[in-house]
């Protein structure tokens, strides 16, 4: 029996959708059902959490706590990427600077970023500057080290080609160095993104009077458990959303790289 092509495509699409949604749906239903009759203080019914979610976050908190957190995250993340790429390019293109800086960088990178919070509090207090600086100082390293590695690994035939066609200075940076290192830079940026989110949350948990992290800890301290759960849910959604956005960005920037890699695999 033959099926018309459009029906087949539709069936295929439906199958994919089923795969996509089946497990999340099952998990949510399980959560709903298993907690529906819950009298446990720590694990309130999902219904309660969801109704707390709307009341808690679709209010003044959206502008007073969520937005400032996200803005600090954005500022810190962008700062880390810009600084990391700049220093990484410098270190990656000069062998002797790299040898000089490598052990110190290895150490600084290995310091768990959260301990930077008390240090930066000494210098800048507990305001926005501290939190943004913490995010920059903690998320910088993966970008920096990956960029340096990517710049170092530029193909020498490609570099010779660029030189012989007079590609120097800013044009060389824009047309050769950055695109060539972009796969590594993006890998570093992905790692930096998750560190940035962690640092945004705990800098607010540790010392703050506003923000997402601060609010969630306040709920916990006041034993407002459904609200606390809704905060955890919101953080999860934020992480998921940012990761989704990053995936889009990555697919766009590295479209050439995927094809190029596949072509190389096919050849070998």
């Amino acid at each position: 029996m033959r099926t018309a092509p459009h029906v087949r495509t539709a069936l295929h699409g439906a199958g994919r959708l089923a795969y996509l949604l089946a497990l999340p749906a099952i998990l949510l239903v399980l959560w709903w059902v298993l907690t529906a009759q819950s009298t446990s203080f720590y694990f309130p019914p999902l219904r309660t959490i969801l109704s707390a979610f709307g009341k808690t976050w679709f209010s003044d908190r959206l502008m007073d706590d969520v937005l400032p957190s996200v803005l600090r995250l954005a500022a810190g993340y962008v700062g880390a990427v810009v600084l990391g790429v700049a220093i990484g390019v410098l270190i990656g293109s000069n062998r002797r600077i790299r040898l000089l800086a490598e052990p110190v960088l290895e150490f600084l990178r290995a310091v768990p970023p959260p301990v930077l919070i008390p240090v930066l509090m000494l210098f800048t207090g507990i305001g926005d500057t501290m939190k943004i600086t913490v995010i920059v100082a903690g998320s910088l390293w993966p970008v920096l080290l990956n960029t340096a590695e990517g710049v170092r690994a530029i193909d020498d035939v490609l570099a010779d080609t660029a030189r012989s066609y007079g590609l120097t200075g800013a044009a060389r940076l824009r047309r050769l160095v950055l695109p060539s290192a972009s796969p590594q830079i993006v890998t570093g940026m992905r790692q930096a993104l998750s560190i940035s989110i962690i640092l945004m949350v705990i800098s607010e948990m540790f010392a703050s009077s506003s923000g997402l992290g601060y609010t969630i800890v306040q709920f916990q301290r006041g034993f407002a458990v459904p609200e606390m759960w809704s905060g955890i849910l919101l953080l999860g959604l934020l992480g998921f959303l940012l990761s989704l956005l990053f995936g889009r960005f990555e697919a766009r920037v590295l479209r050439w790289h995927r094809g190029w890699r596949q072509a190389q695999k096919g050849e070998s």
């Binding site: 193909d155 035939v157 010779d160 012989s164 590609l167 047309r175």
Partner: peptide, 28 residues
Amino acid sequence: MAVVFQEYGRSLFPWMTVEQNIELPLKQ
């Protein structure tokens, strides 16, 4: 002066289309 290298796979910029590859030196 222009150079054509043996390693064609490594002398073309893989992030640029064929046209962009040819155009880049002209921009320079």
